[in-house]
Design a protein around this nucleic acid. Structure first.
Lengths: 229, 229
DNA sequence: TTATTTAATTGCAAATAACAAATATTTGAT
DNA sequence: ATCAAATATTTGTTATTTGCAATTAAATAA
């Protein structure tokens, strides 16, 4: 293998989002106390590409996520790549940022001392260019929420319509109209009724249970949110 | 500078699009006859990150584009990053792909022997993962065309409404309704009348000249294309 | 002058969305 | 049991937006 040029340091960083207590939250990890750069600082989880272990960039991301949480993400998408001389004091470095969504209940093996869920709004202060990465992630997630099934990956496999509408509202950071939301979701055929009991959580009529009609991300022809005013 | 891990080869590749003869076209470059991999093959223009010359990934892209064409792009946006063991026979490699738009008349210094404009539809056969990159570029450009001023970066600084509609149709690969297009463009305030003479090209009423109301990309609230049927 | 060509505007029916209200189904209190 | 309260779900009604077609405008060419 011939390579005429020296290569930059290559890492991945992941913006992991979940819905906890009705609020969109972000996973932060504390860097090792003996890290060469920013020891003990809270940052996005990330790590070097291990050319021996990882066959692809996604492998790196999934390995990092497993290491920090012991689980698997429900949705993973590449965000953007930052590369420059000055983003890391060690010199020319490149980081491929990813967006991951995971339902709260699927993350069980969290090391409470070294990892933490923090609200994404307002965006916390973060070192390096991690704040820019989080901003990009929120824009992406908000953009796709408007015309896809993306927010549903923050929910359990079966969910109610009020739950579904709540995730959309949390992600879009905007109130939605009930009847319009239901009509559109129905038209898109994005969900189907799930077998089994209904959800009763206290008073009121119990909501029917649904699940995604397809396991992959679905794009709609039209937009879900109100574009007026 | 300490670095515990060996790093992959890092390159950038650019999908440069222009509108030529009313058709969306893609810039291809012929690899050197003595290249270690795929000598003489037509590929996307690209090159290694030069850690000494380039301060950022965009620097690399702009340097590559200048080298091939002698000009500057009108619009540049990062697309996606491919990284794996098997995309290049030389081993673990990573390529950051970019999308660039340029109006035809601004590219003058083309080396006809080593560079070539080819129609993007149907997508030409390309080595490595360049075909996947082009597919991504087309999806991105099509997606953004539906709700932004992006296609206008394929036009000269001043243009007519029929010209503007033609680029949108070329990029979207879809016919648009005249009156709806004009209504929406006007509502968005995306363009303003340009001073100076009108464009008369032969018979028929001459069209008025317009220019973008802002030099940067503008997002619309609504979608430009017909979503029916 | 008049036909032809392309640009630009206008009117109207059909589709869609926002808003408001009504109905349904449950739990919990009397 | 019955009724009130709570939440889910559906149904109208009106205003906005869109798609389509026709009309008007301004130029060239015969």
């Amino acid at each position: 293998m011939i390579d005429d040029f020296p290569n930059p340091i290559v890492t991945t960083d992941v913006v992991v989002l979940t819905l906890k207590d009705g609020v969109l939250r972000l996973l932060l990890a504390q860097r090792a106390a003996d890290a060469a750069v920013a020891p003990g600082v809270w940052t996005l989880p990330g790590g070097f590409v291990h050319m021996d272990k990882d066959r692809s960039l996604e492998d790196t991301v999934r390995r990092v996520f497993r290491t920090k949480t012991g689980g698997e993400v429900a949705y993973l998408e590449q965000l953007c790549t930052f590369g420059s001389t000055d983003r890391d004091p060690r010199g020319w470095s490149l980081s491929v940022a990813y967006l991951a969504l995971v339902p709260e209940h699927k993350v069980t093996g969290l090391d409470e001392q070294r990892t933490r869920w923090v609200p994404v709004r307002p965006c916390p202060d973060l070192p390096f260019d991690h704040r820019a990465i989080v901003t990009q992630a929120l824009e992406r997630v908000r953009g796709k929420a408007a015309y896809s099934s993306l927010p549903a990956f923050l929910l359990p496999d079966t969910f109610t319509l009020p739950q579904l509408m709540a995730v959309y509202e949390a992600v879009l950071d905007q109130q939605l109209d009930q009847s319009t939301f239901r009509r559109k979701v129905a038209e898109q055929g994005m969900i189907v009724k799930a077998r089994g009991a209904r959800a009763h959580t206290g008073a009121g009529r119990p909501a029917a249970l649904y699940k995604l009609s397809r396991p992959a991300l679905q794009d709609f022809g039209r937009v879900l949110l109100s574009t007026r005013d």
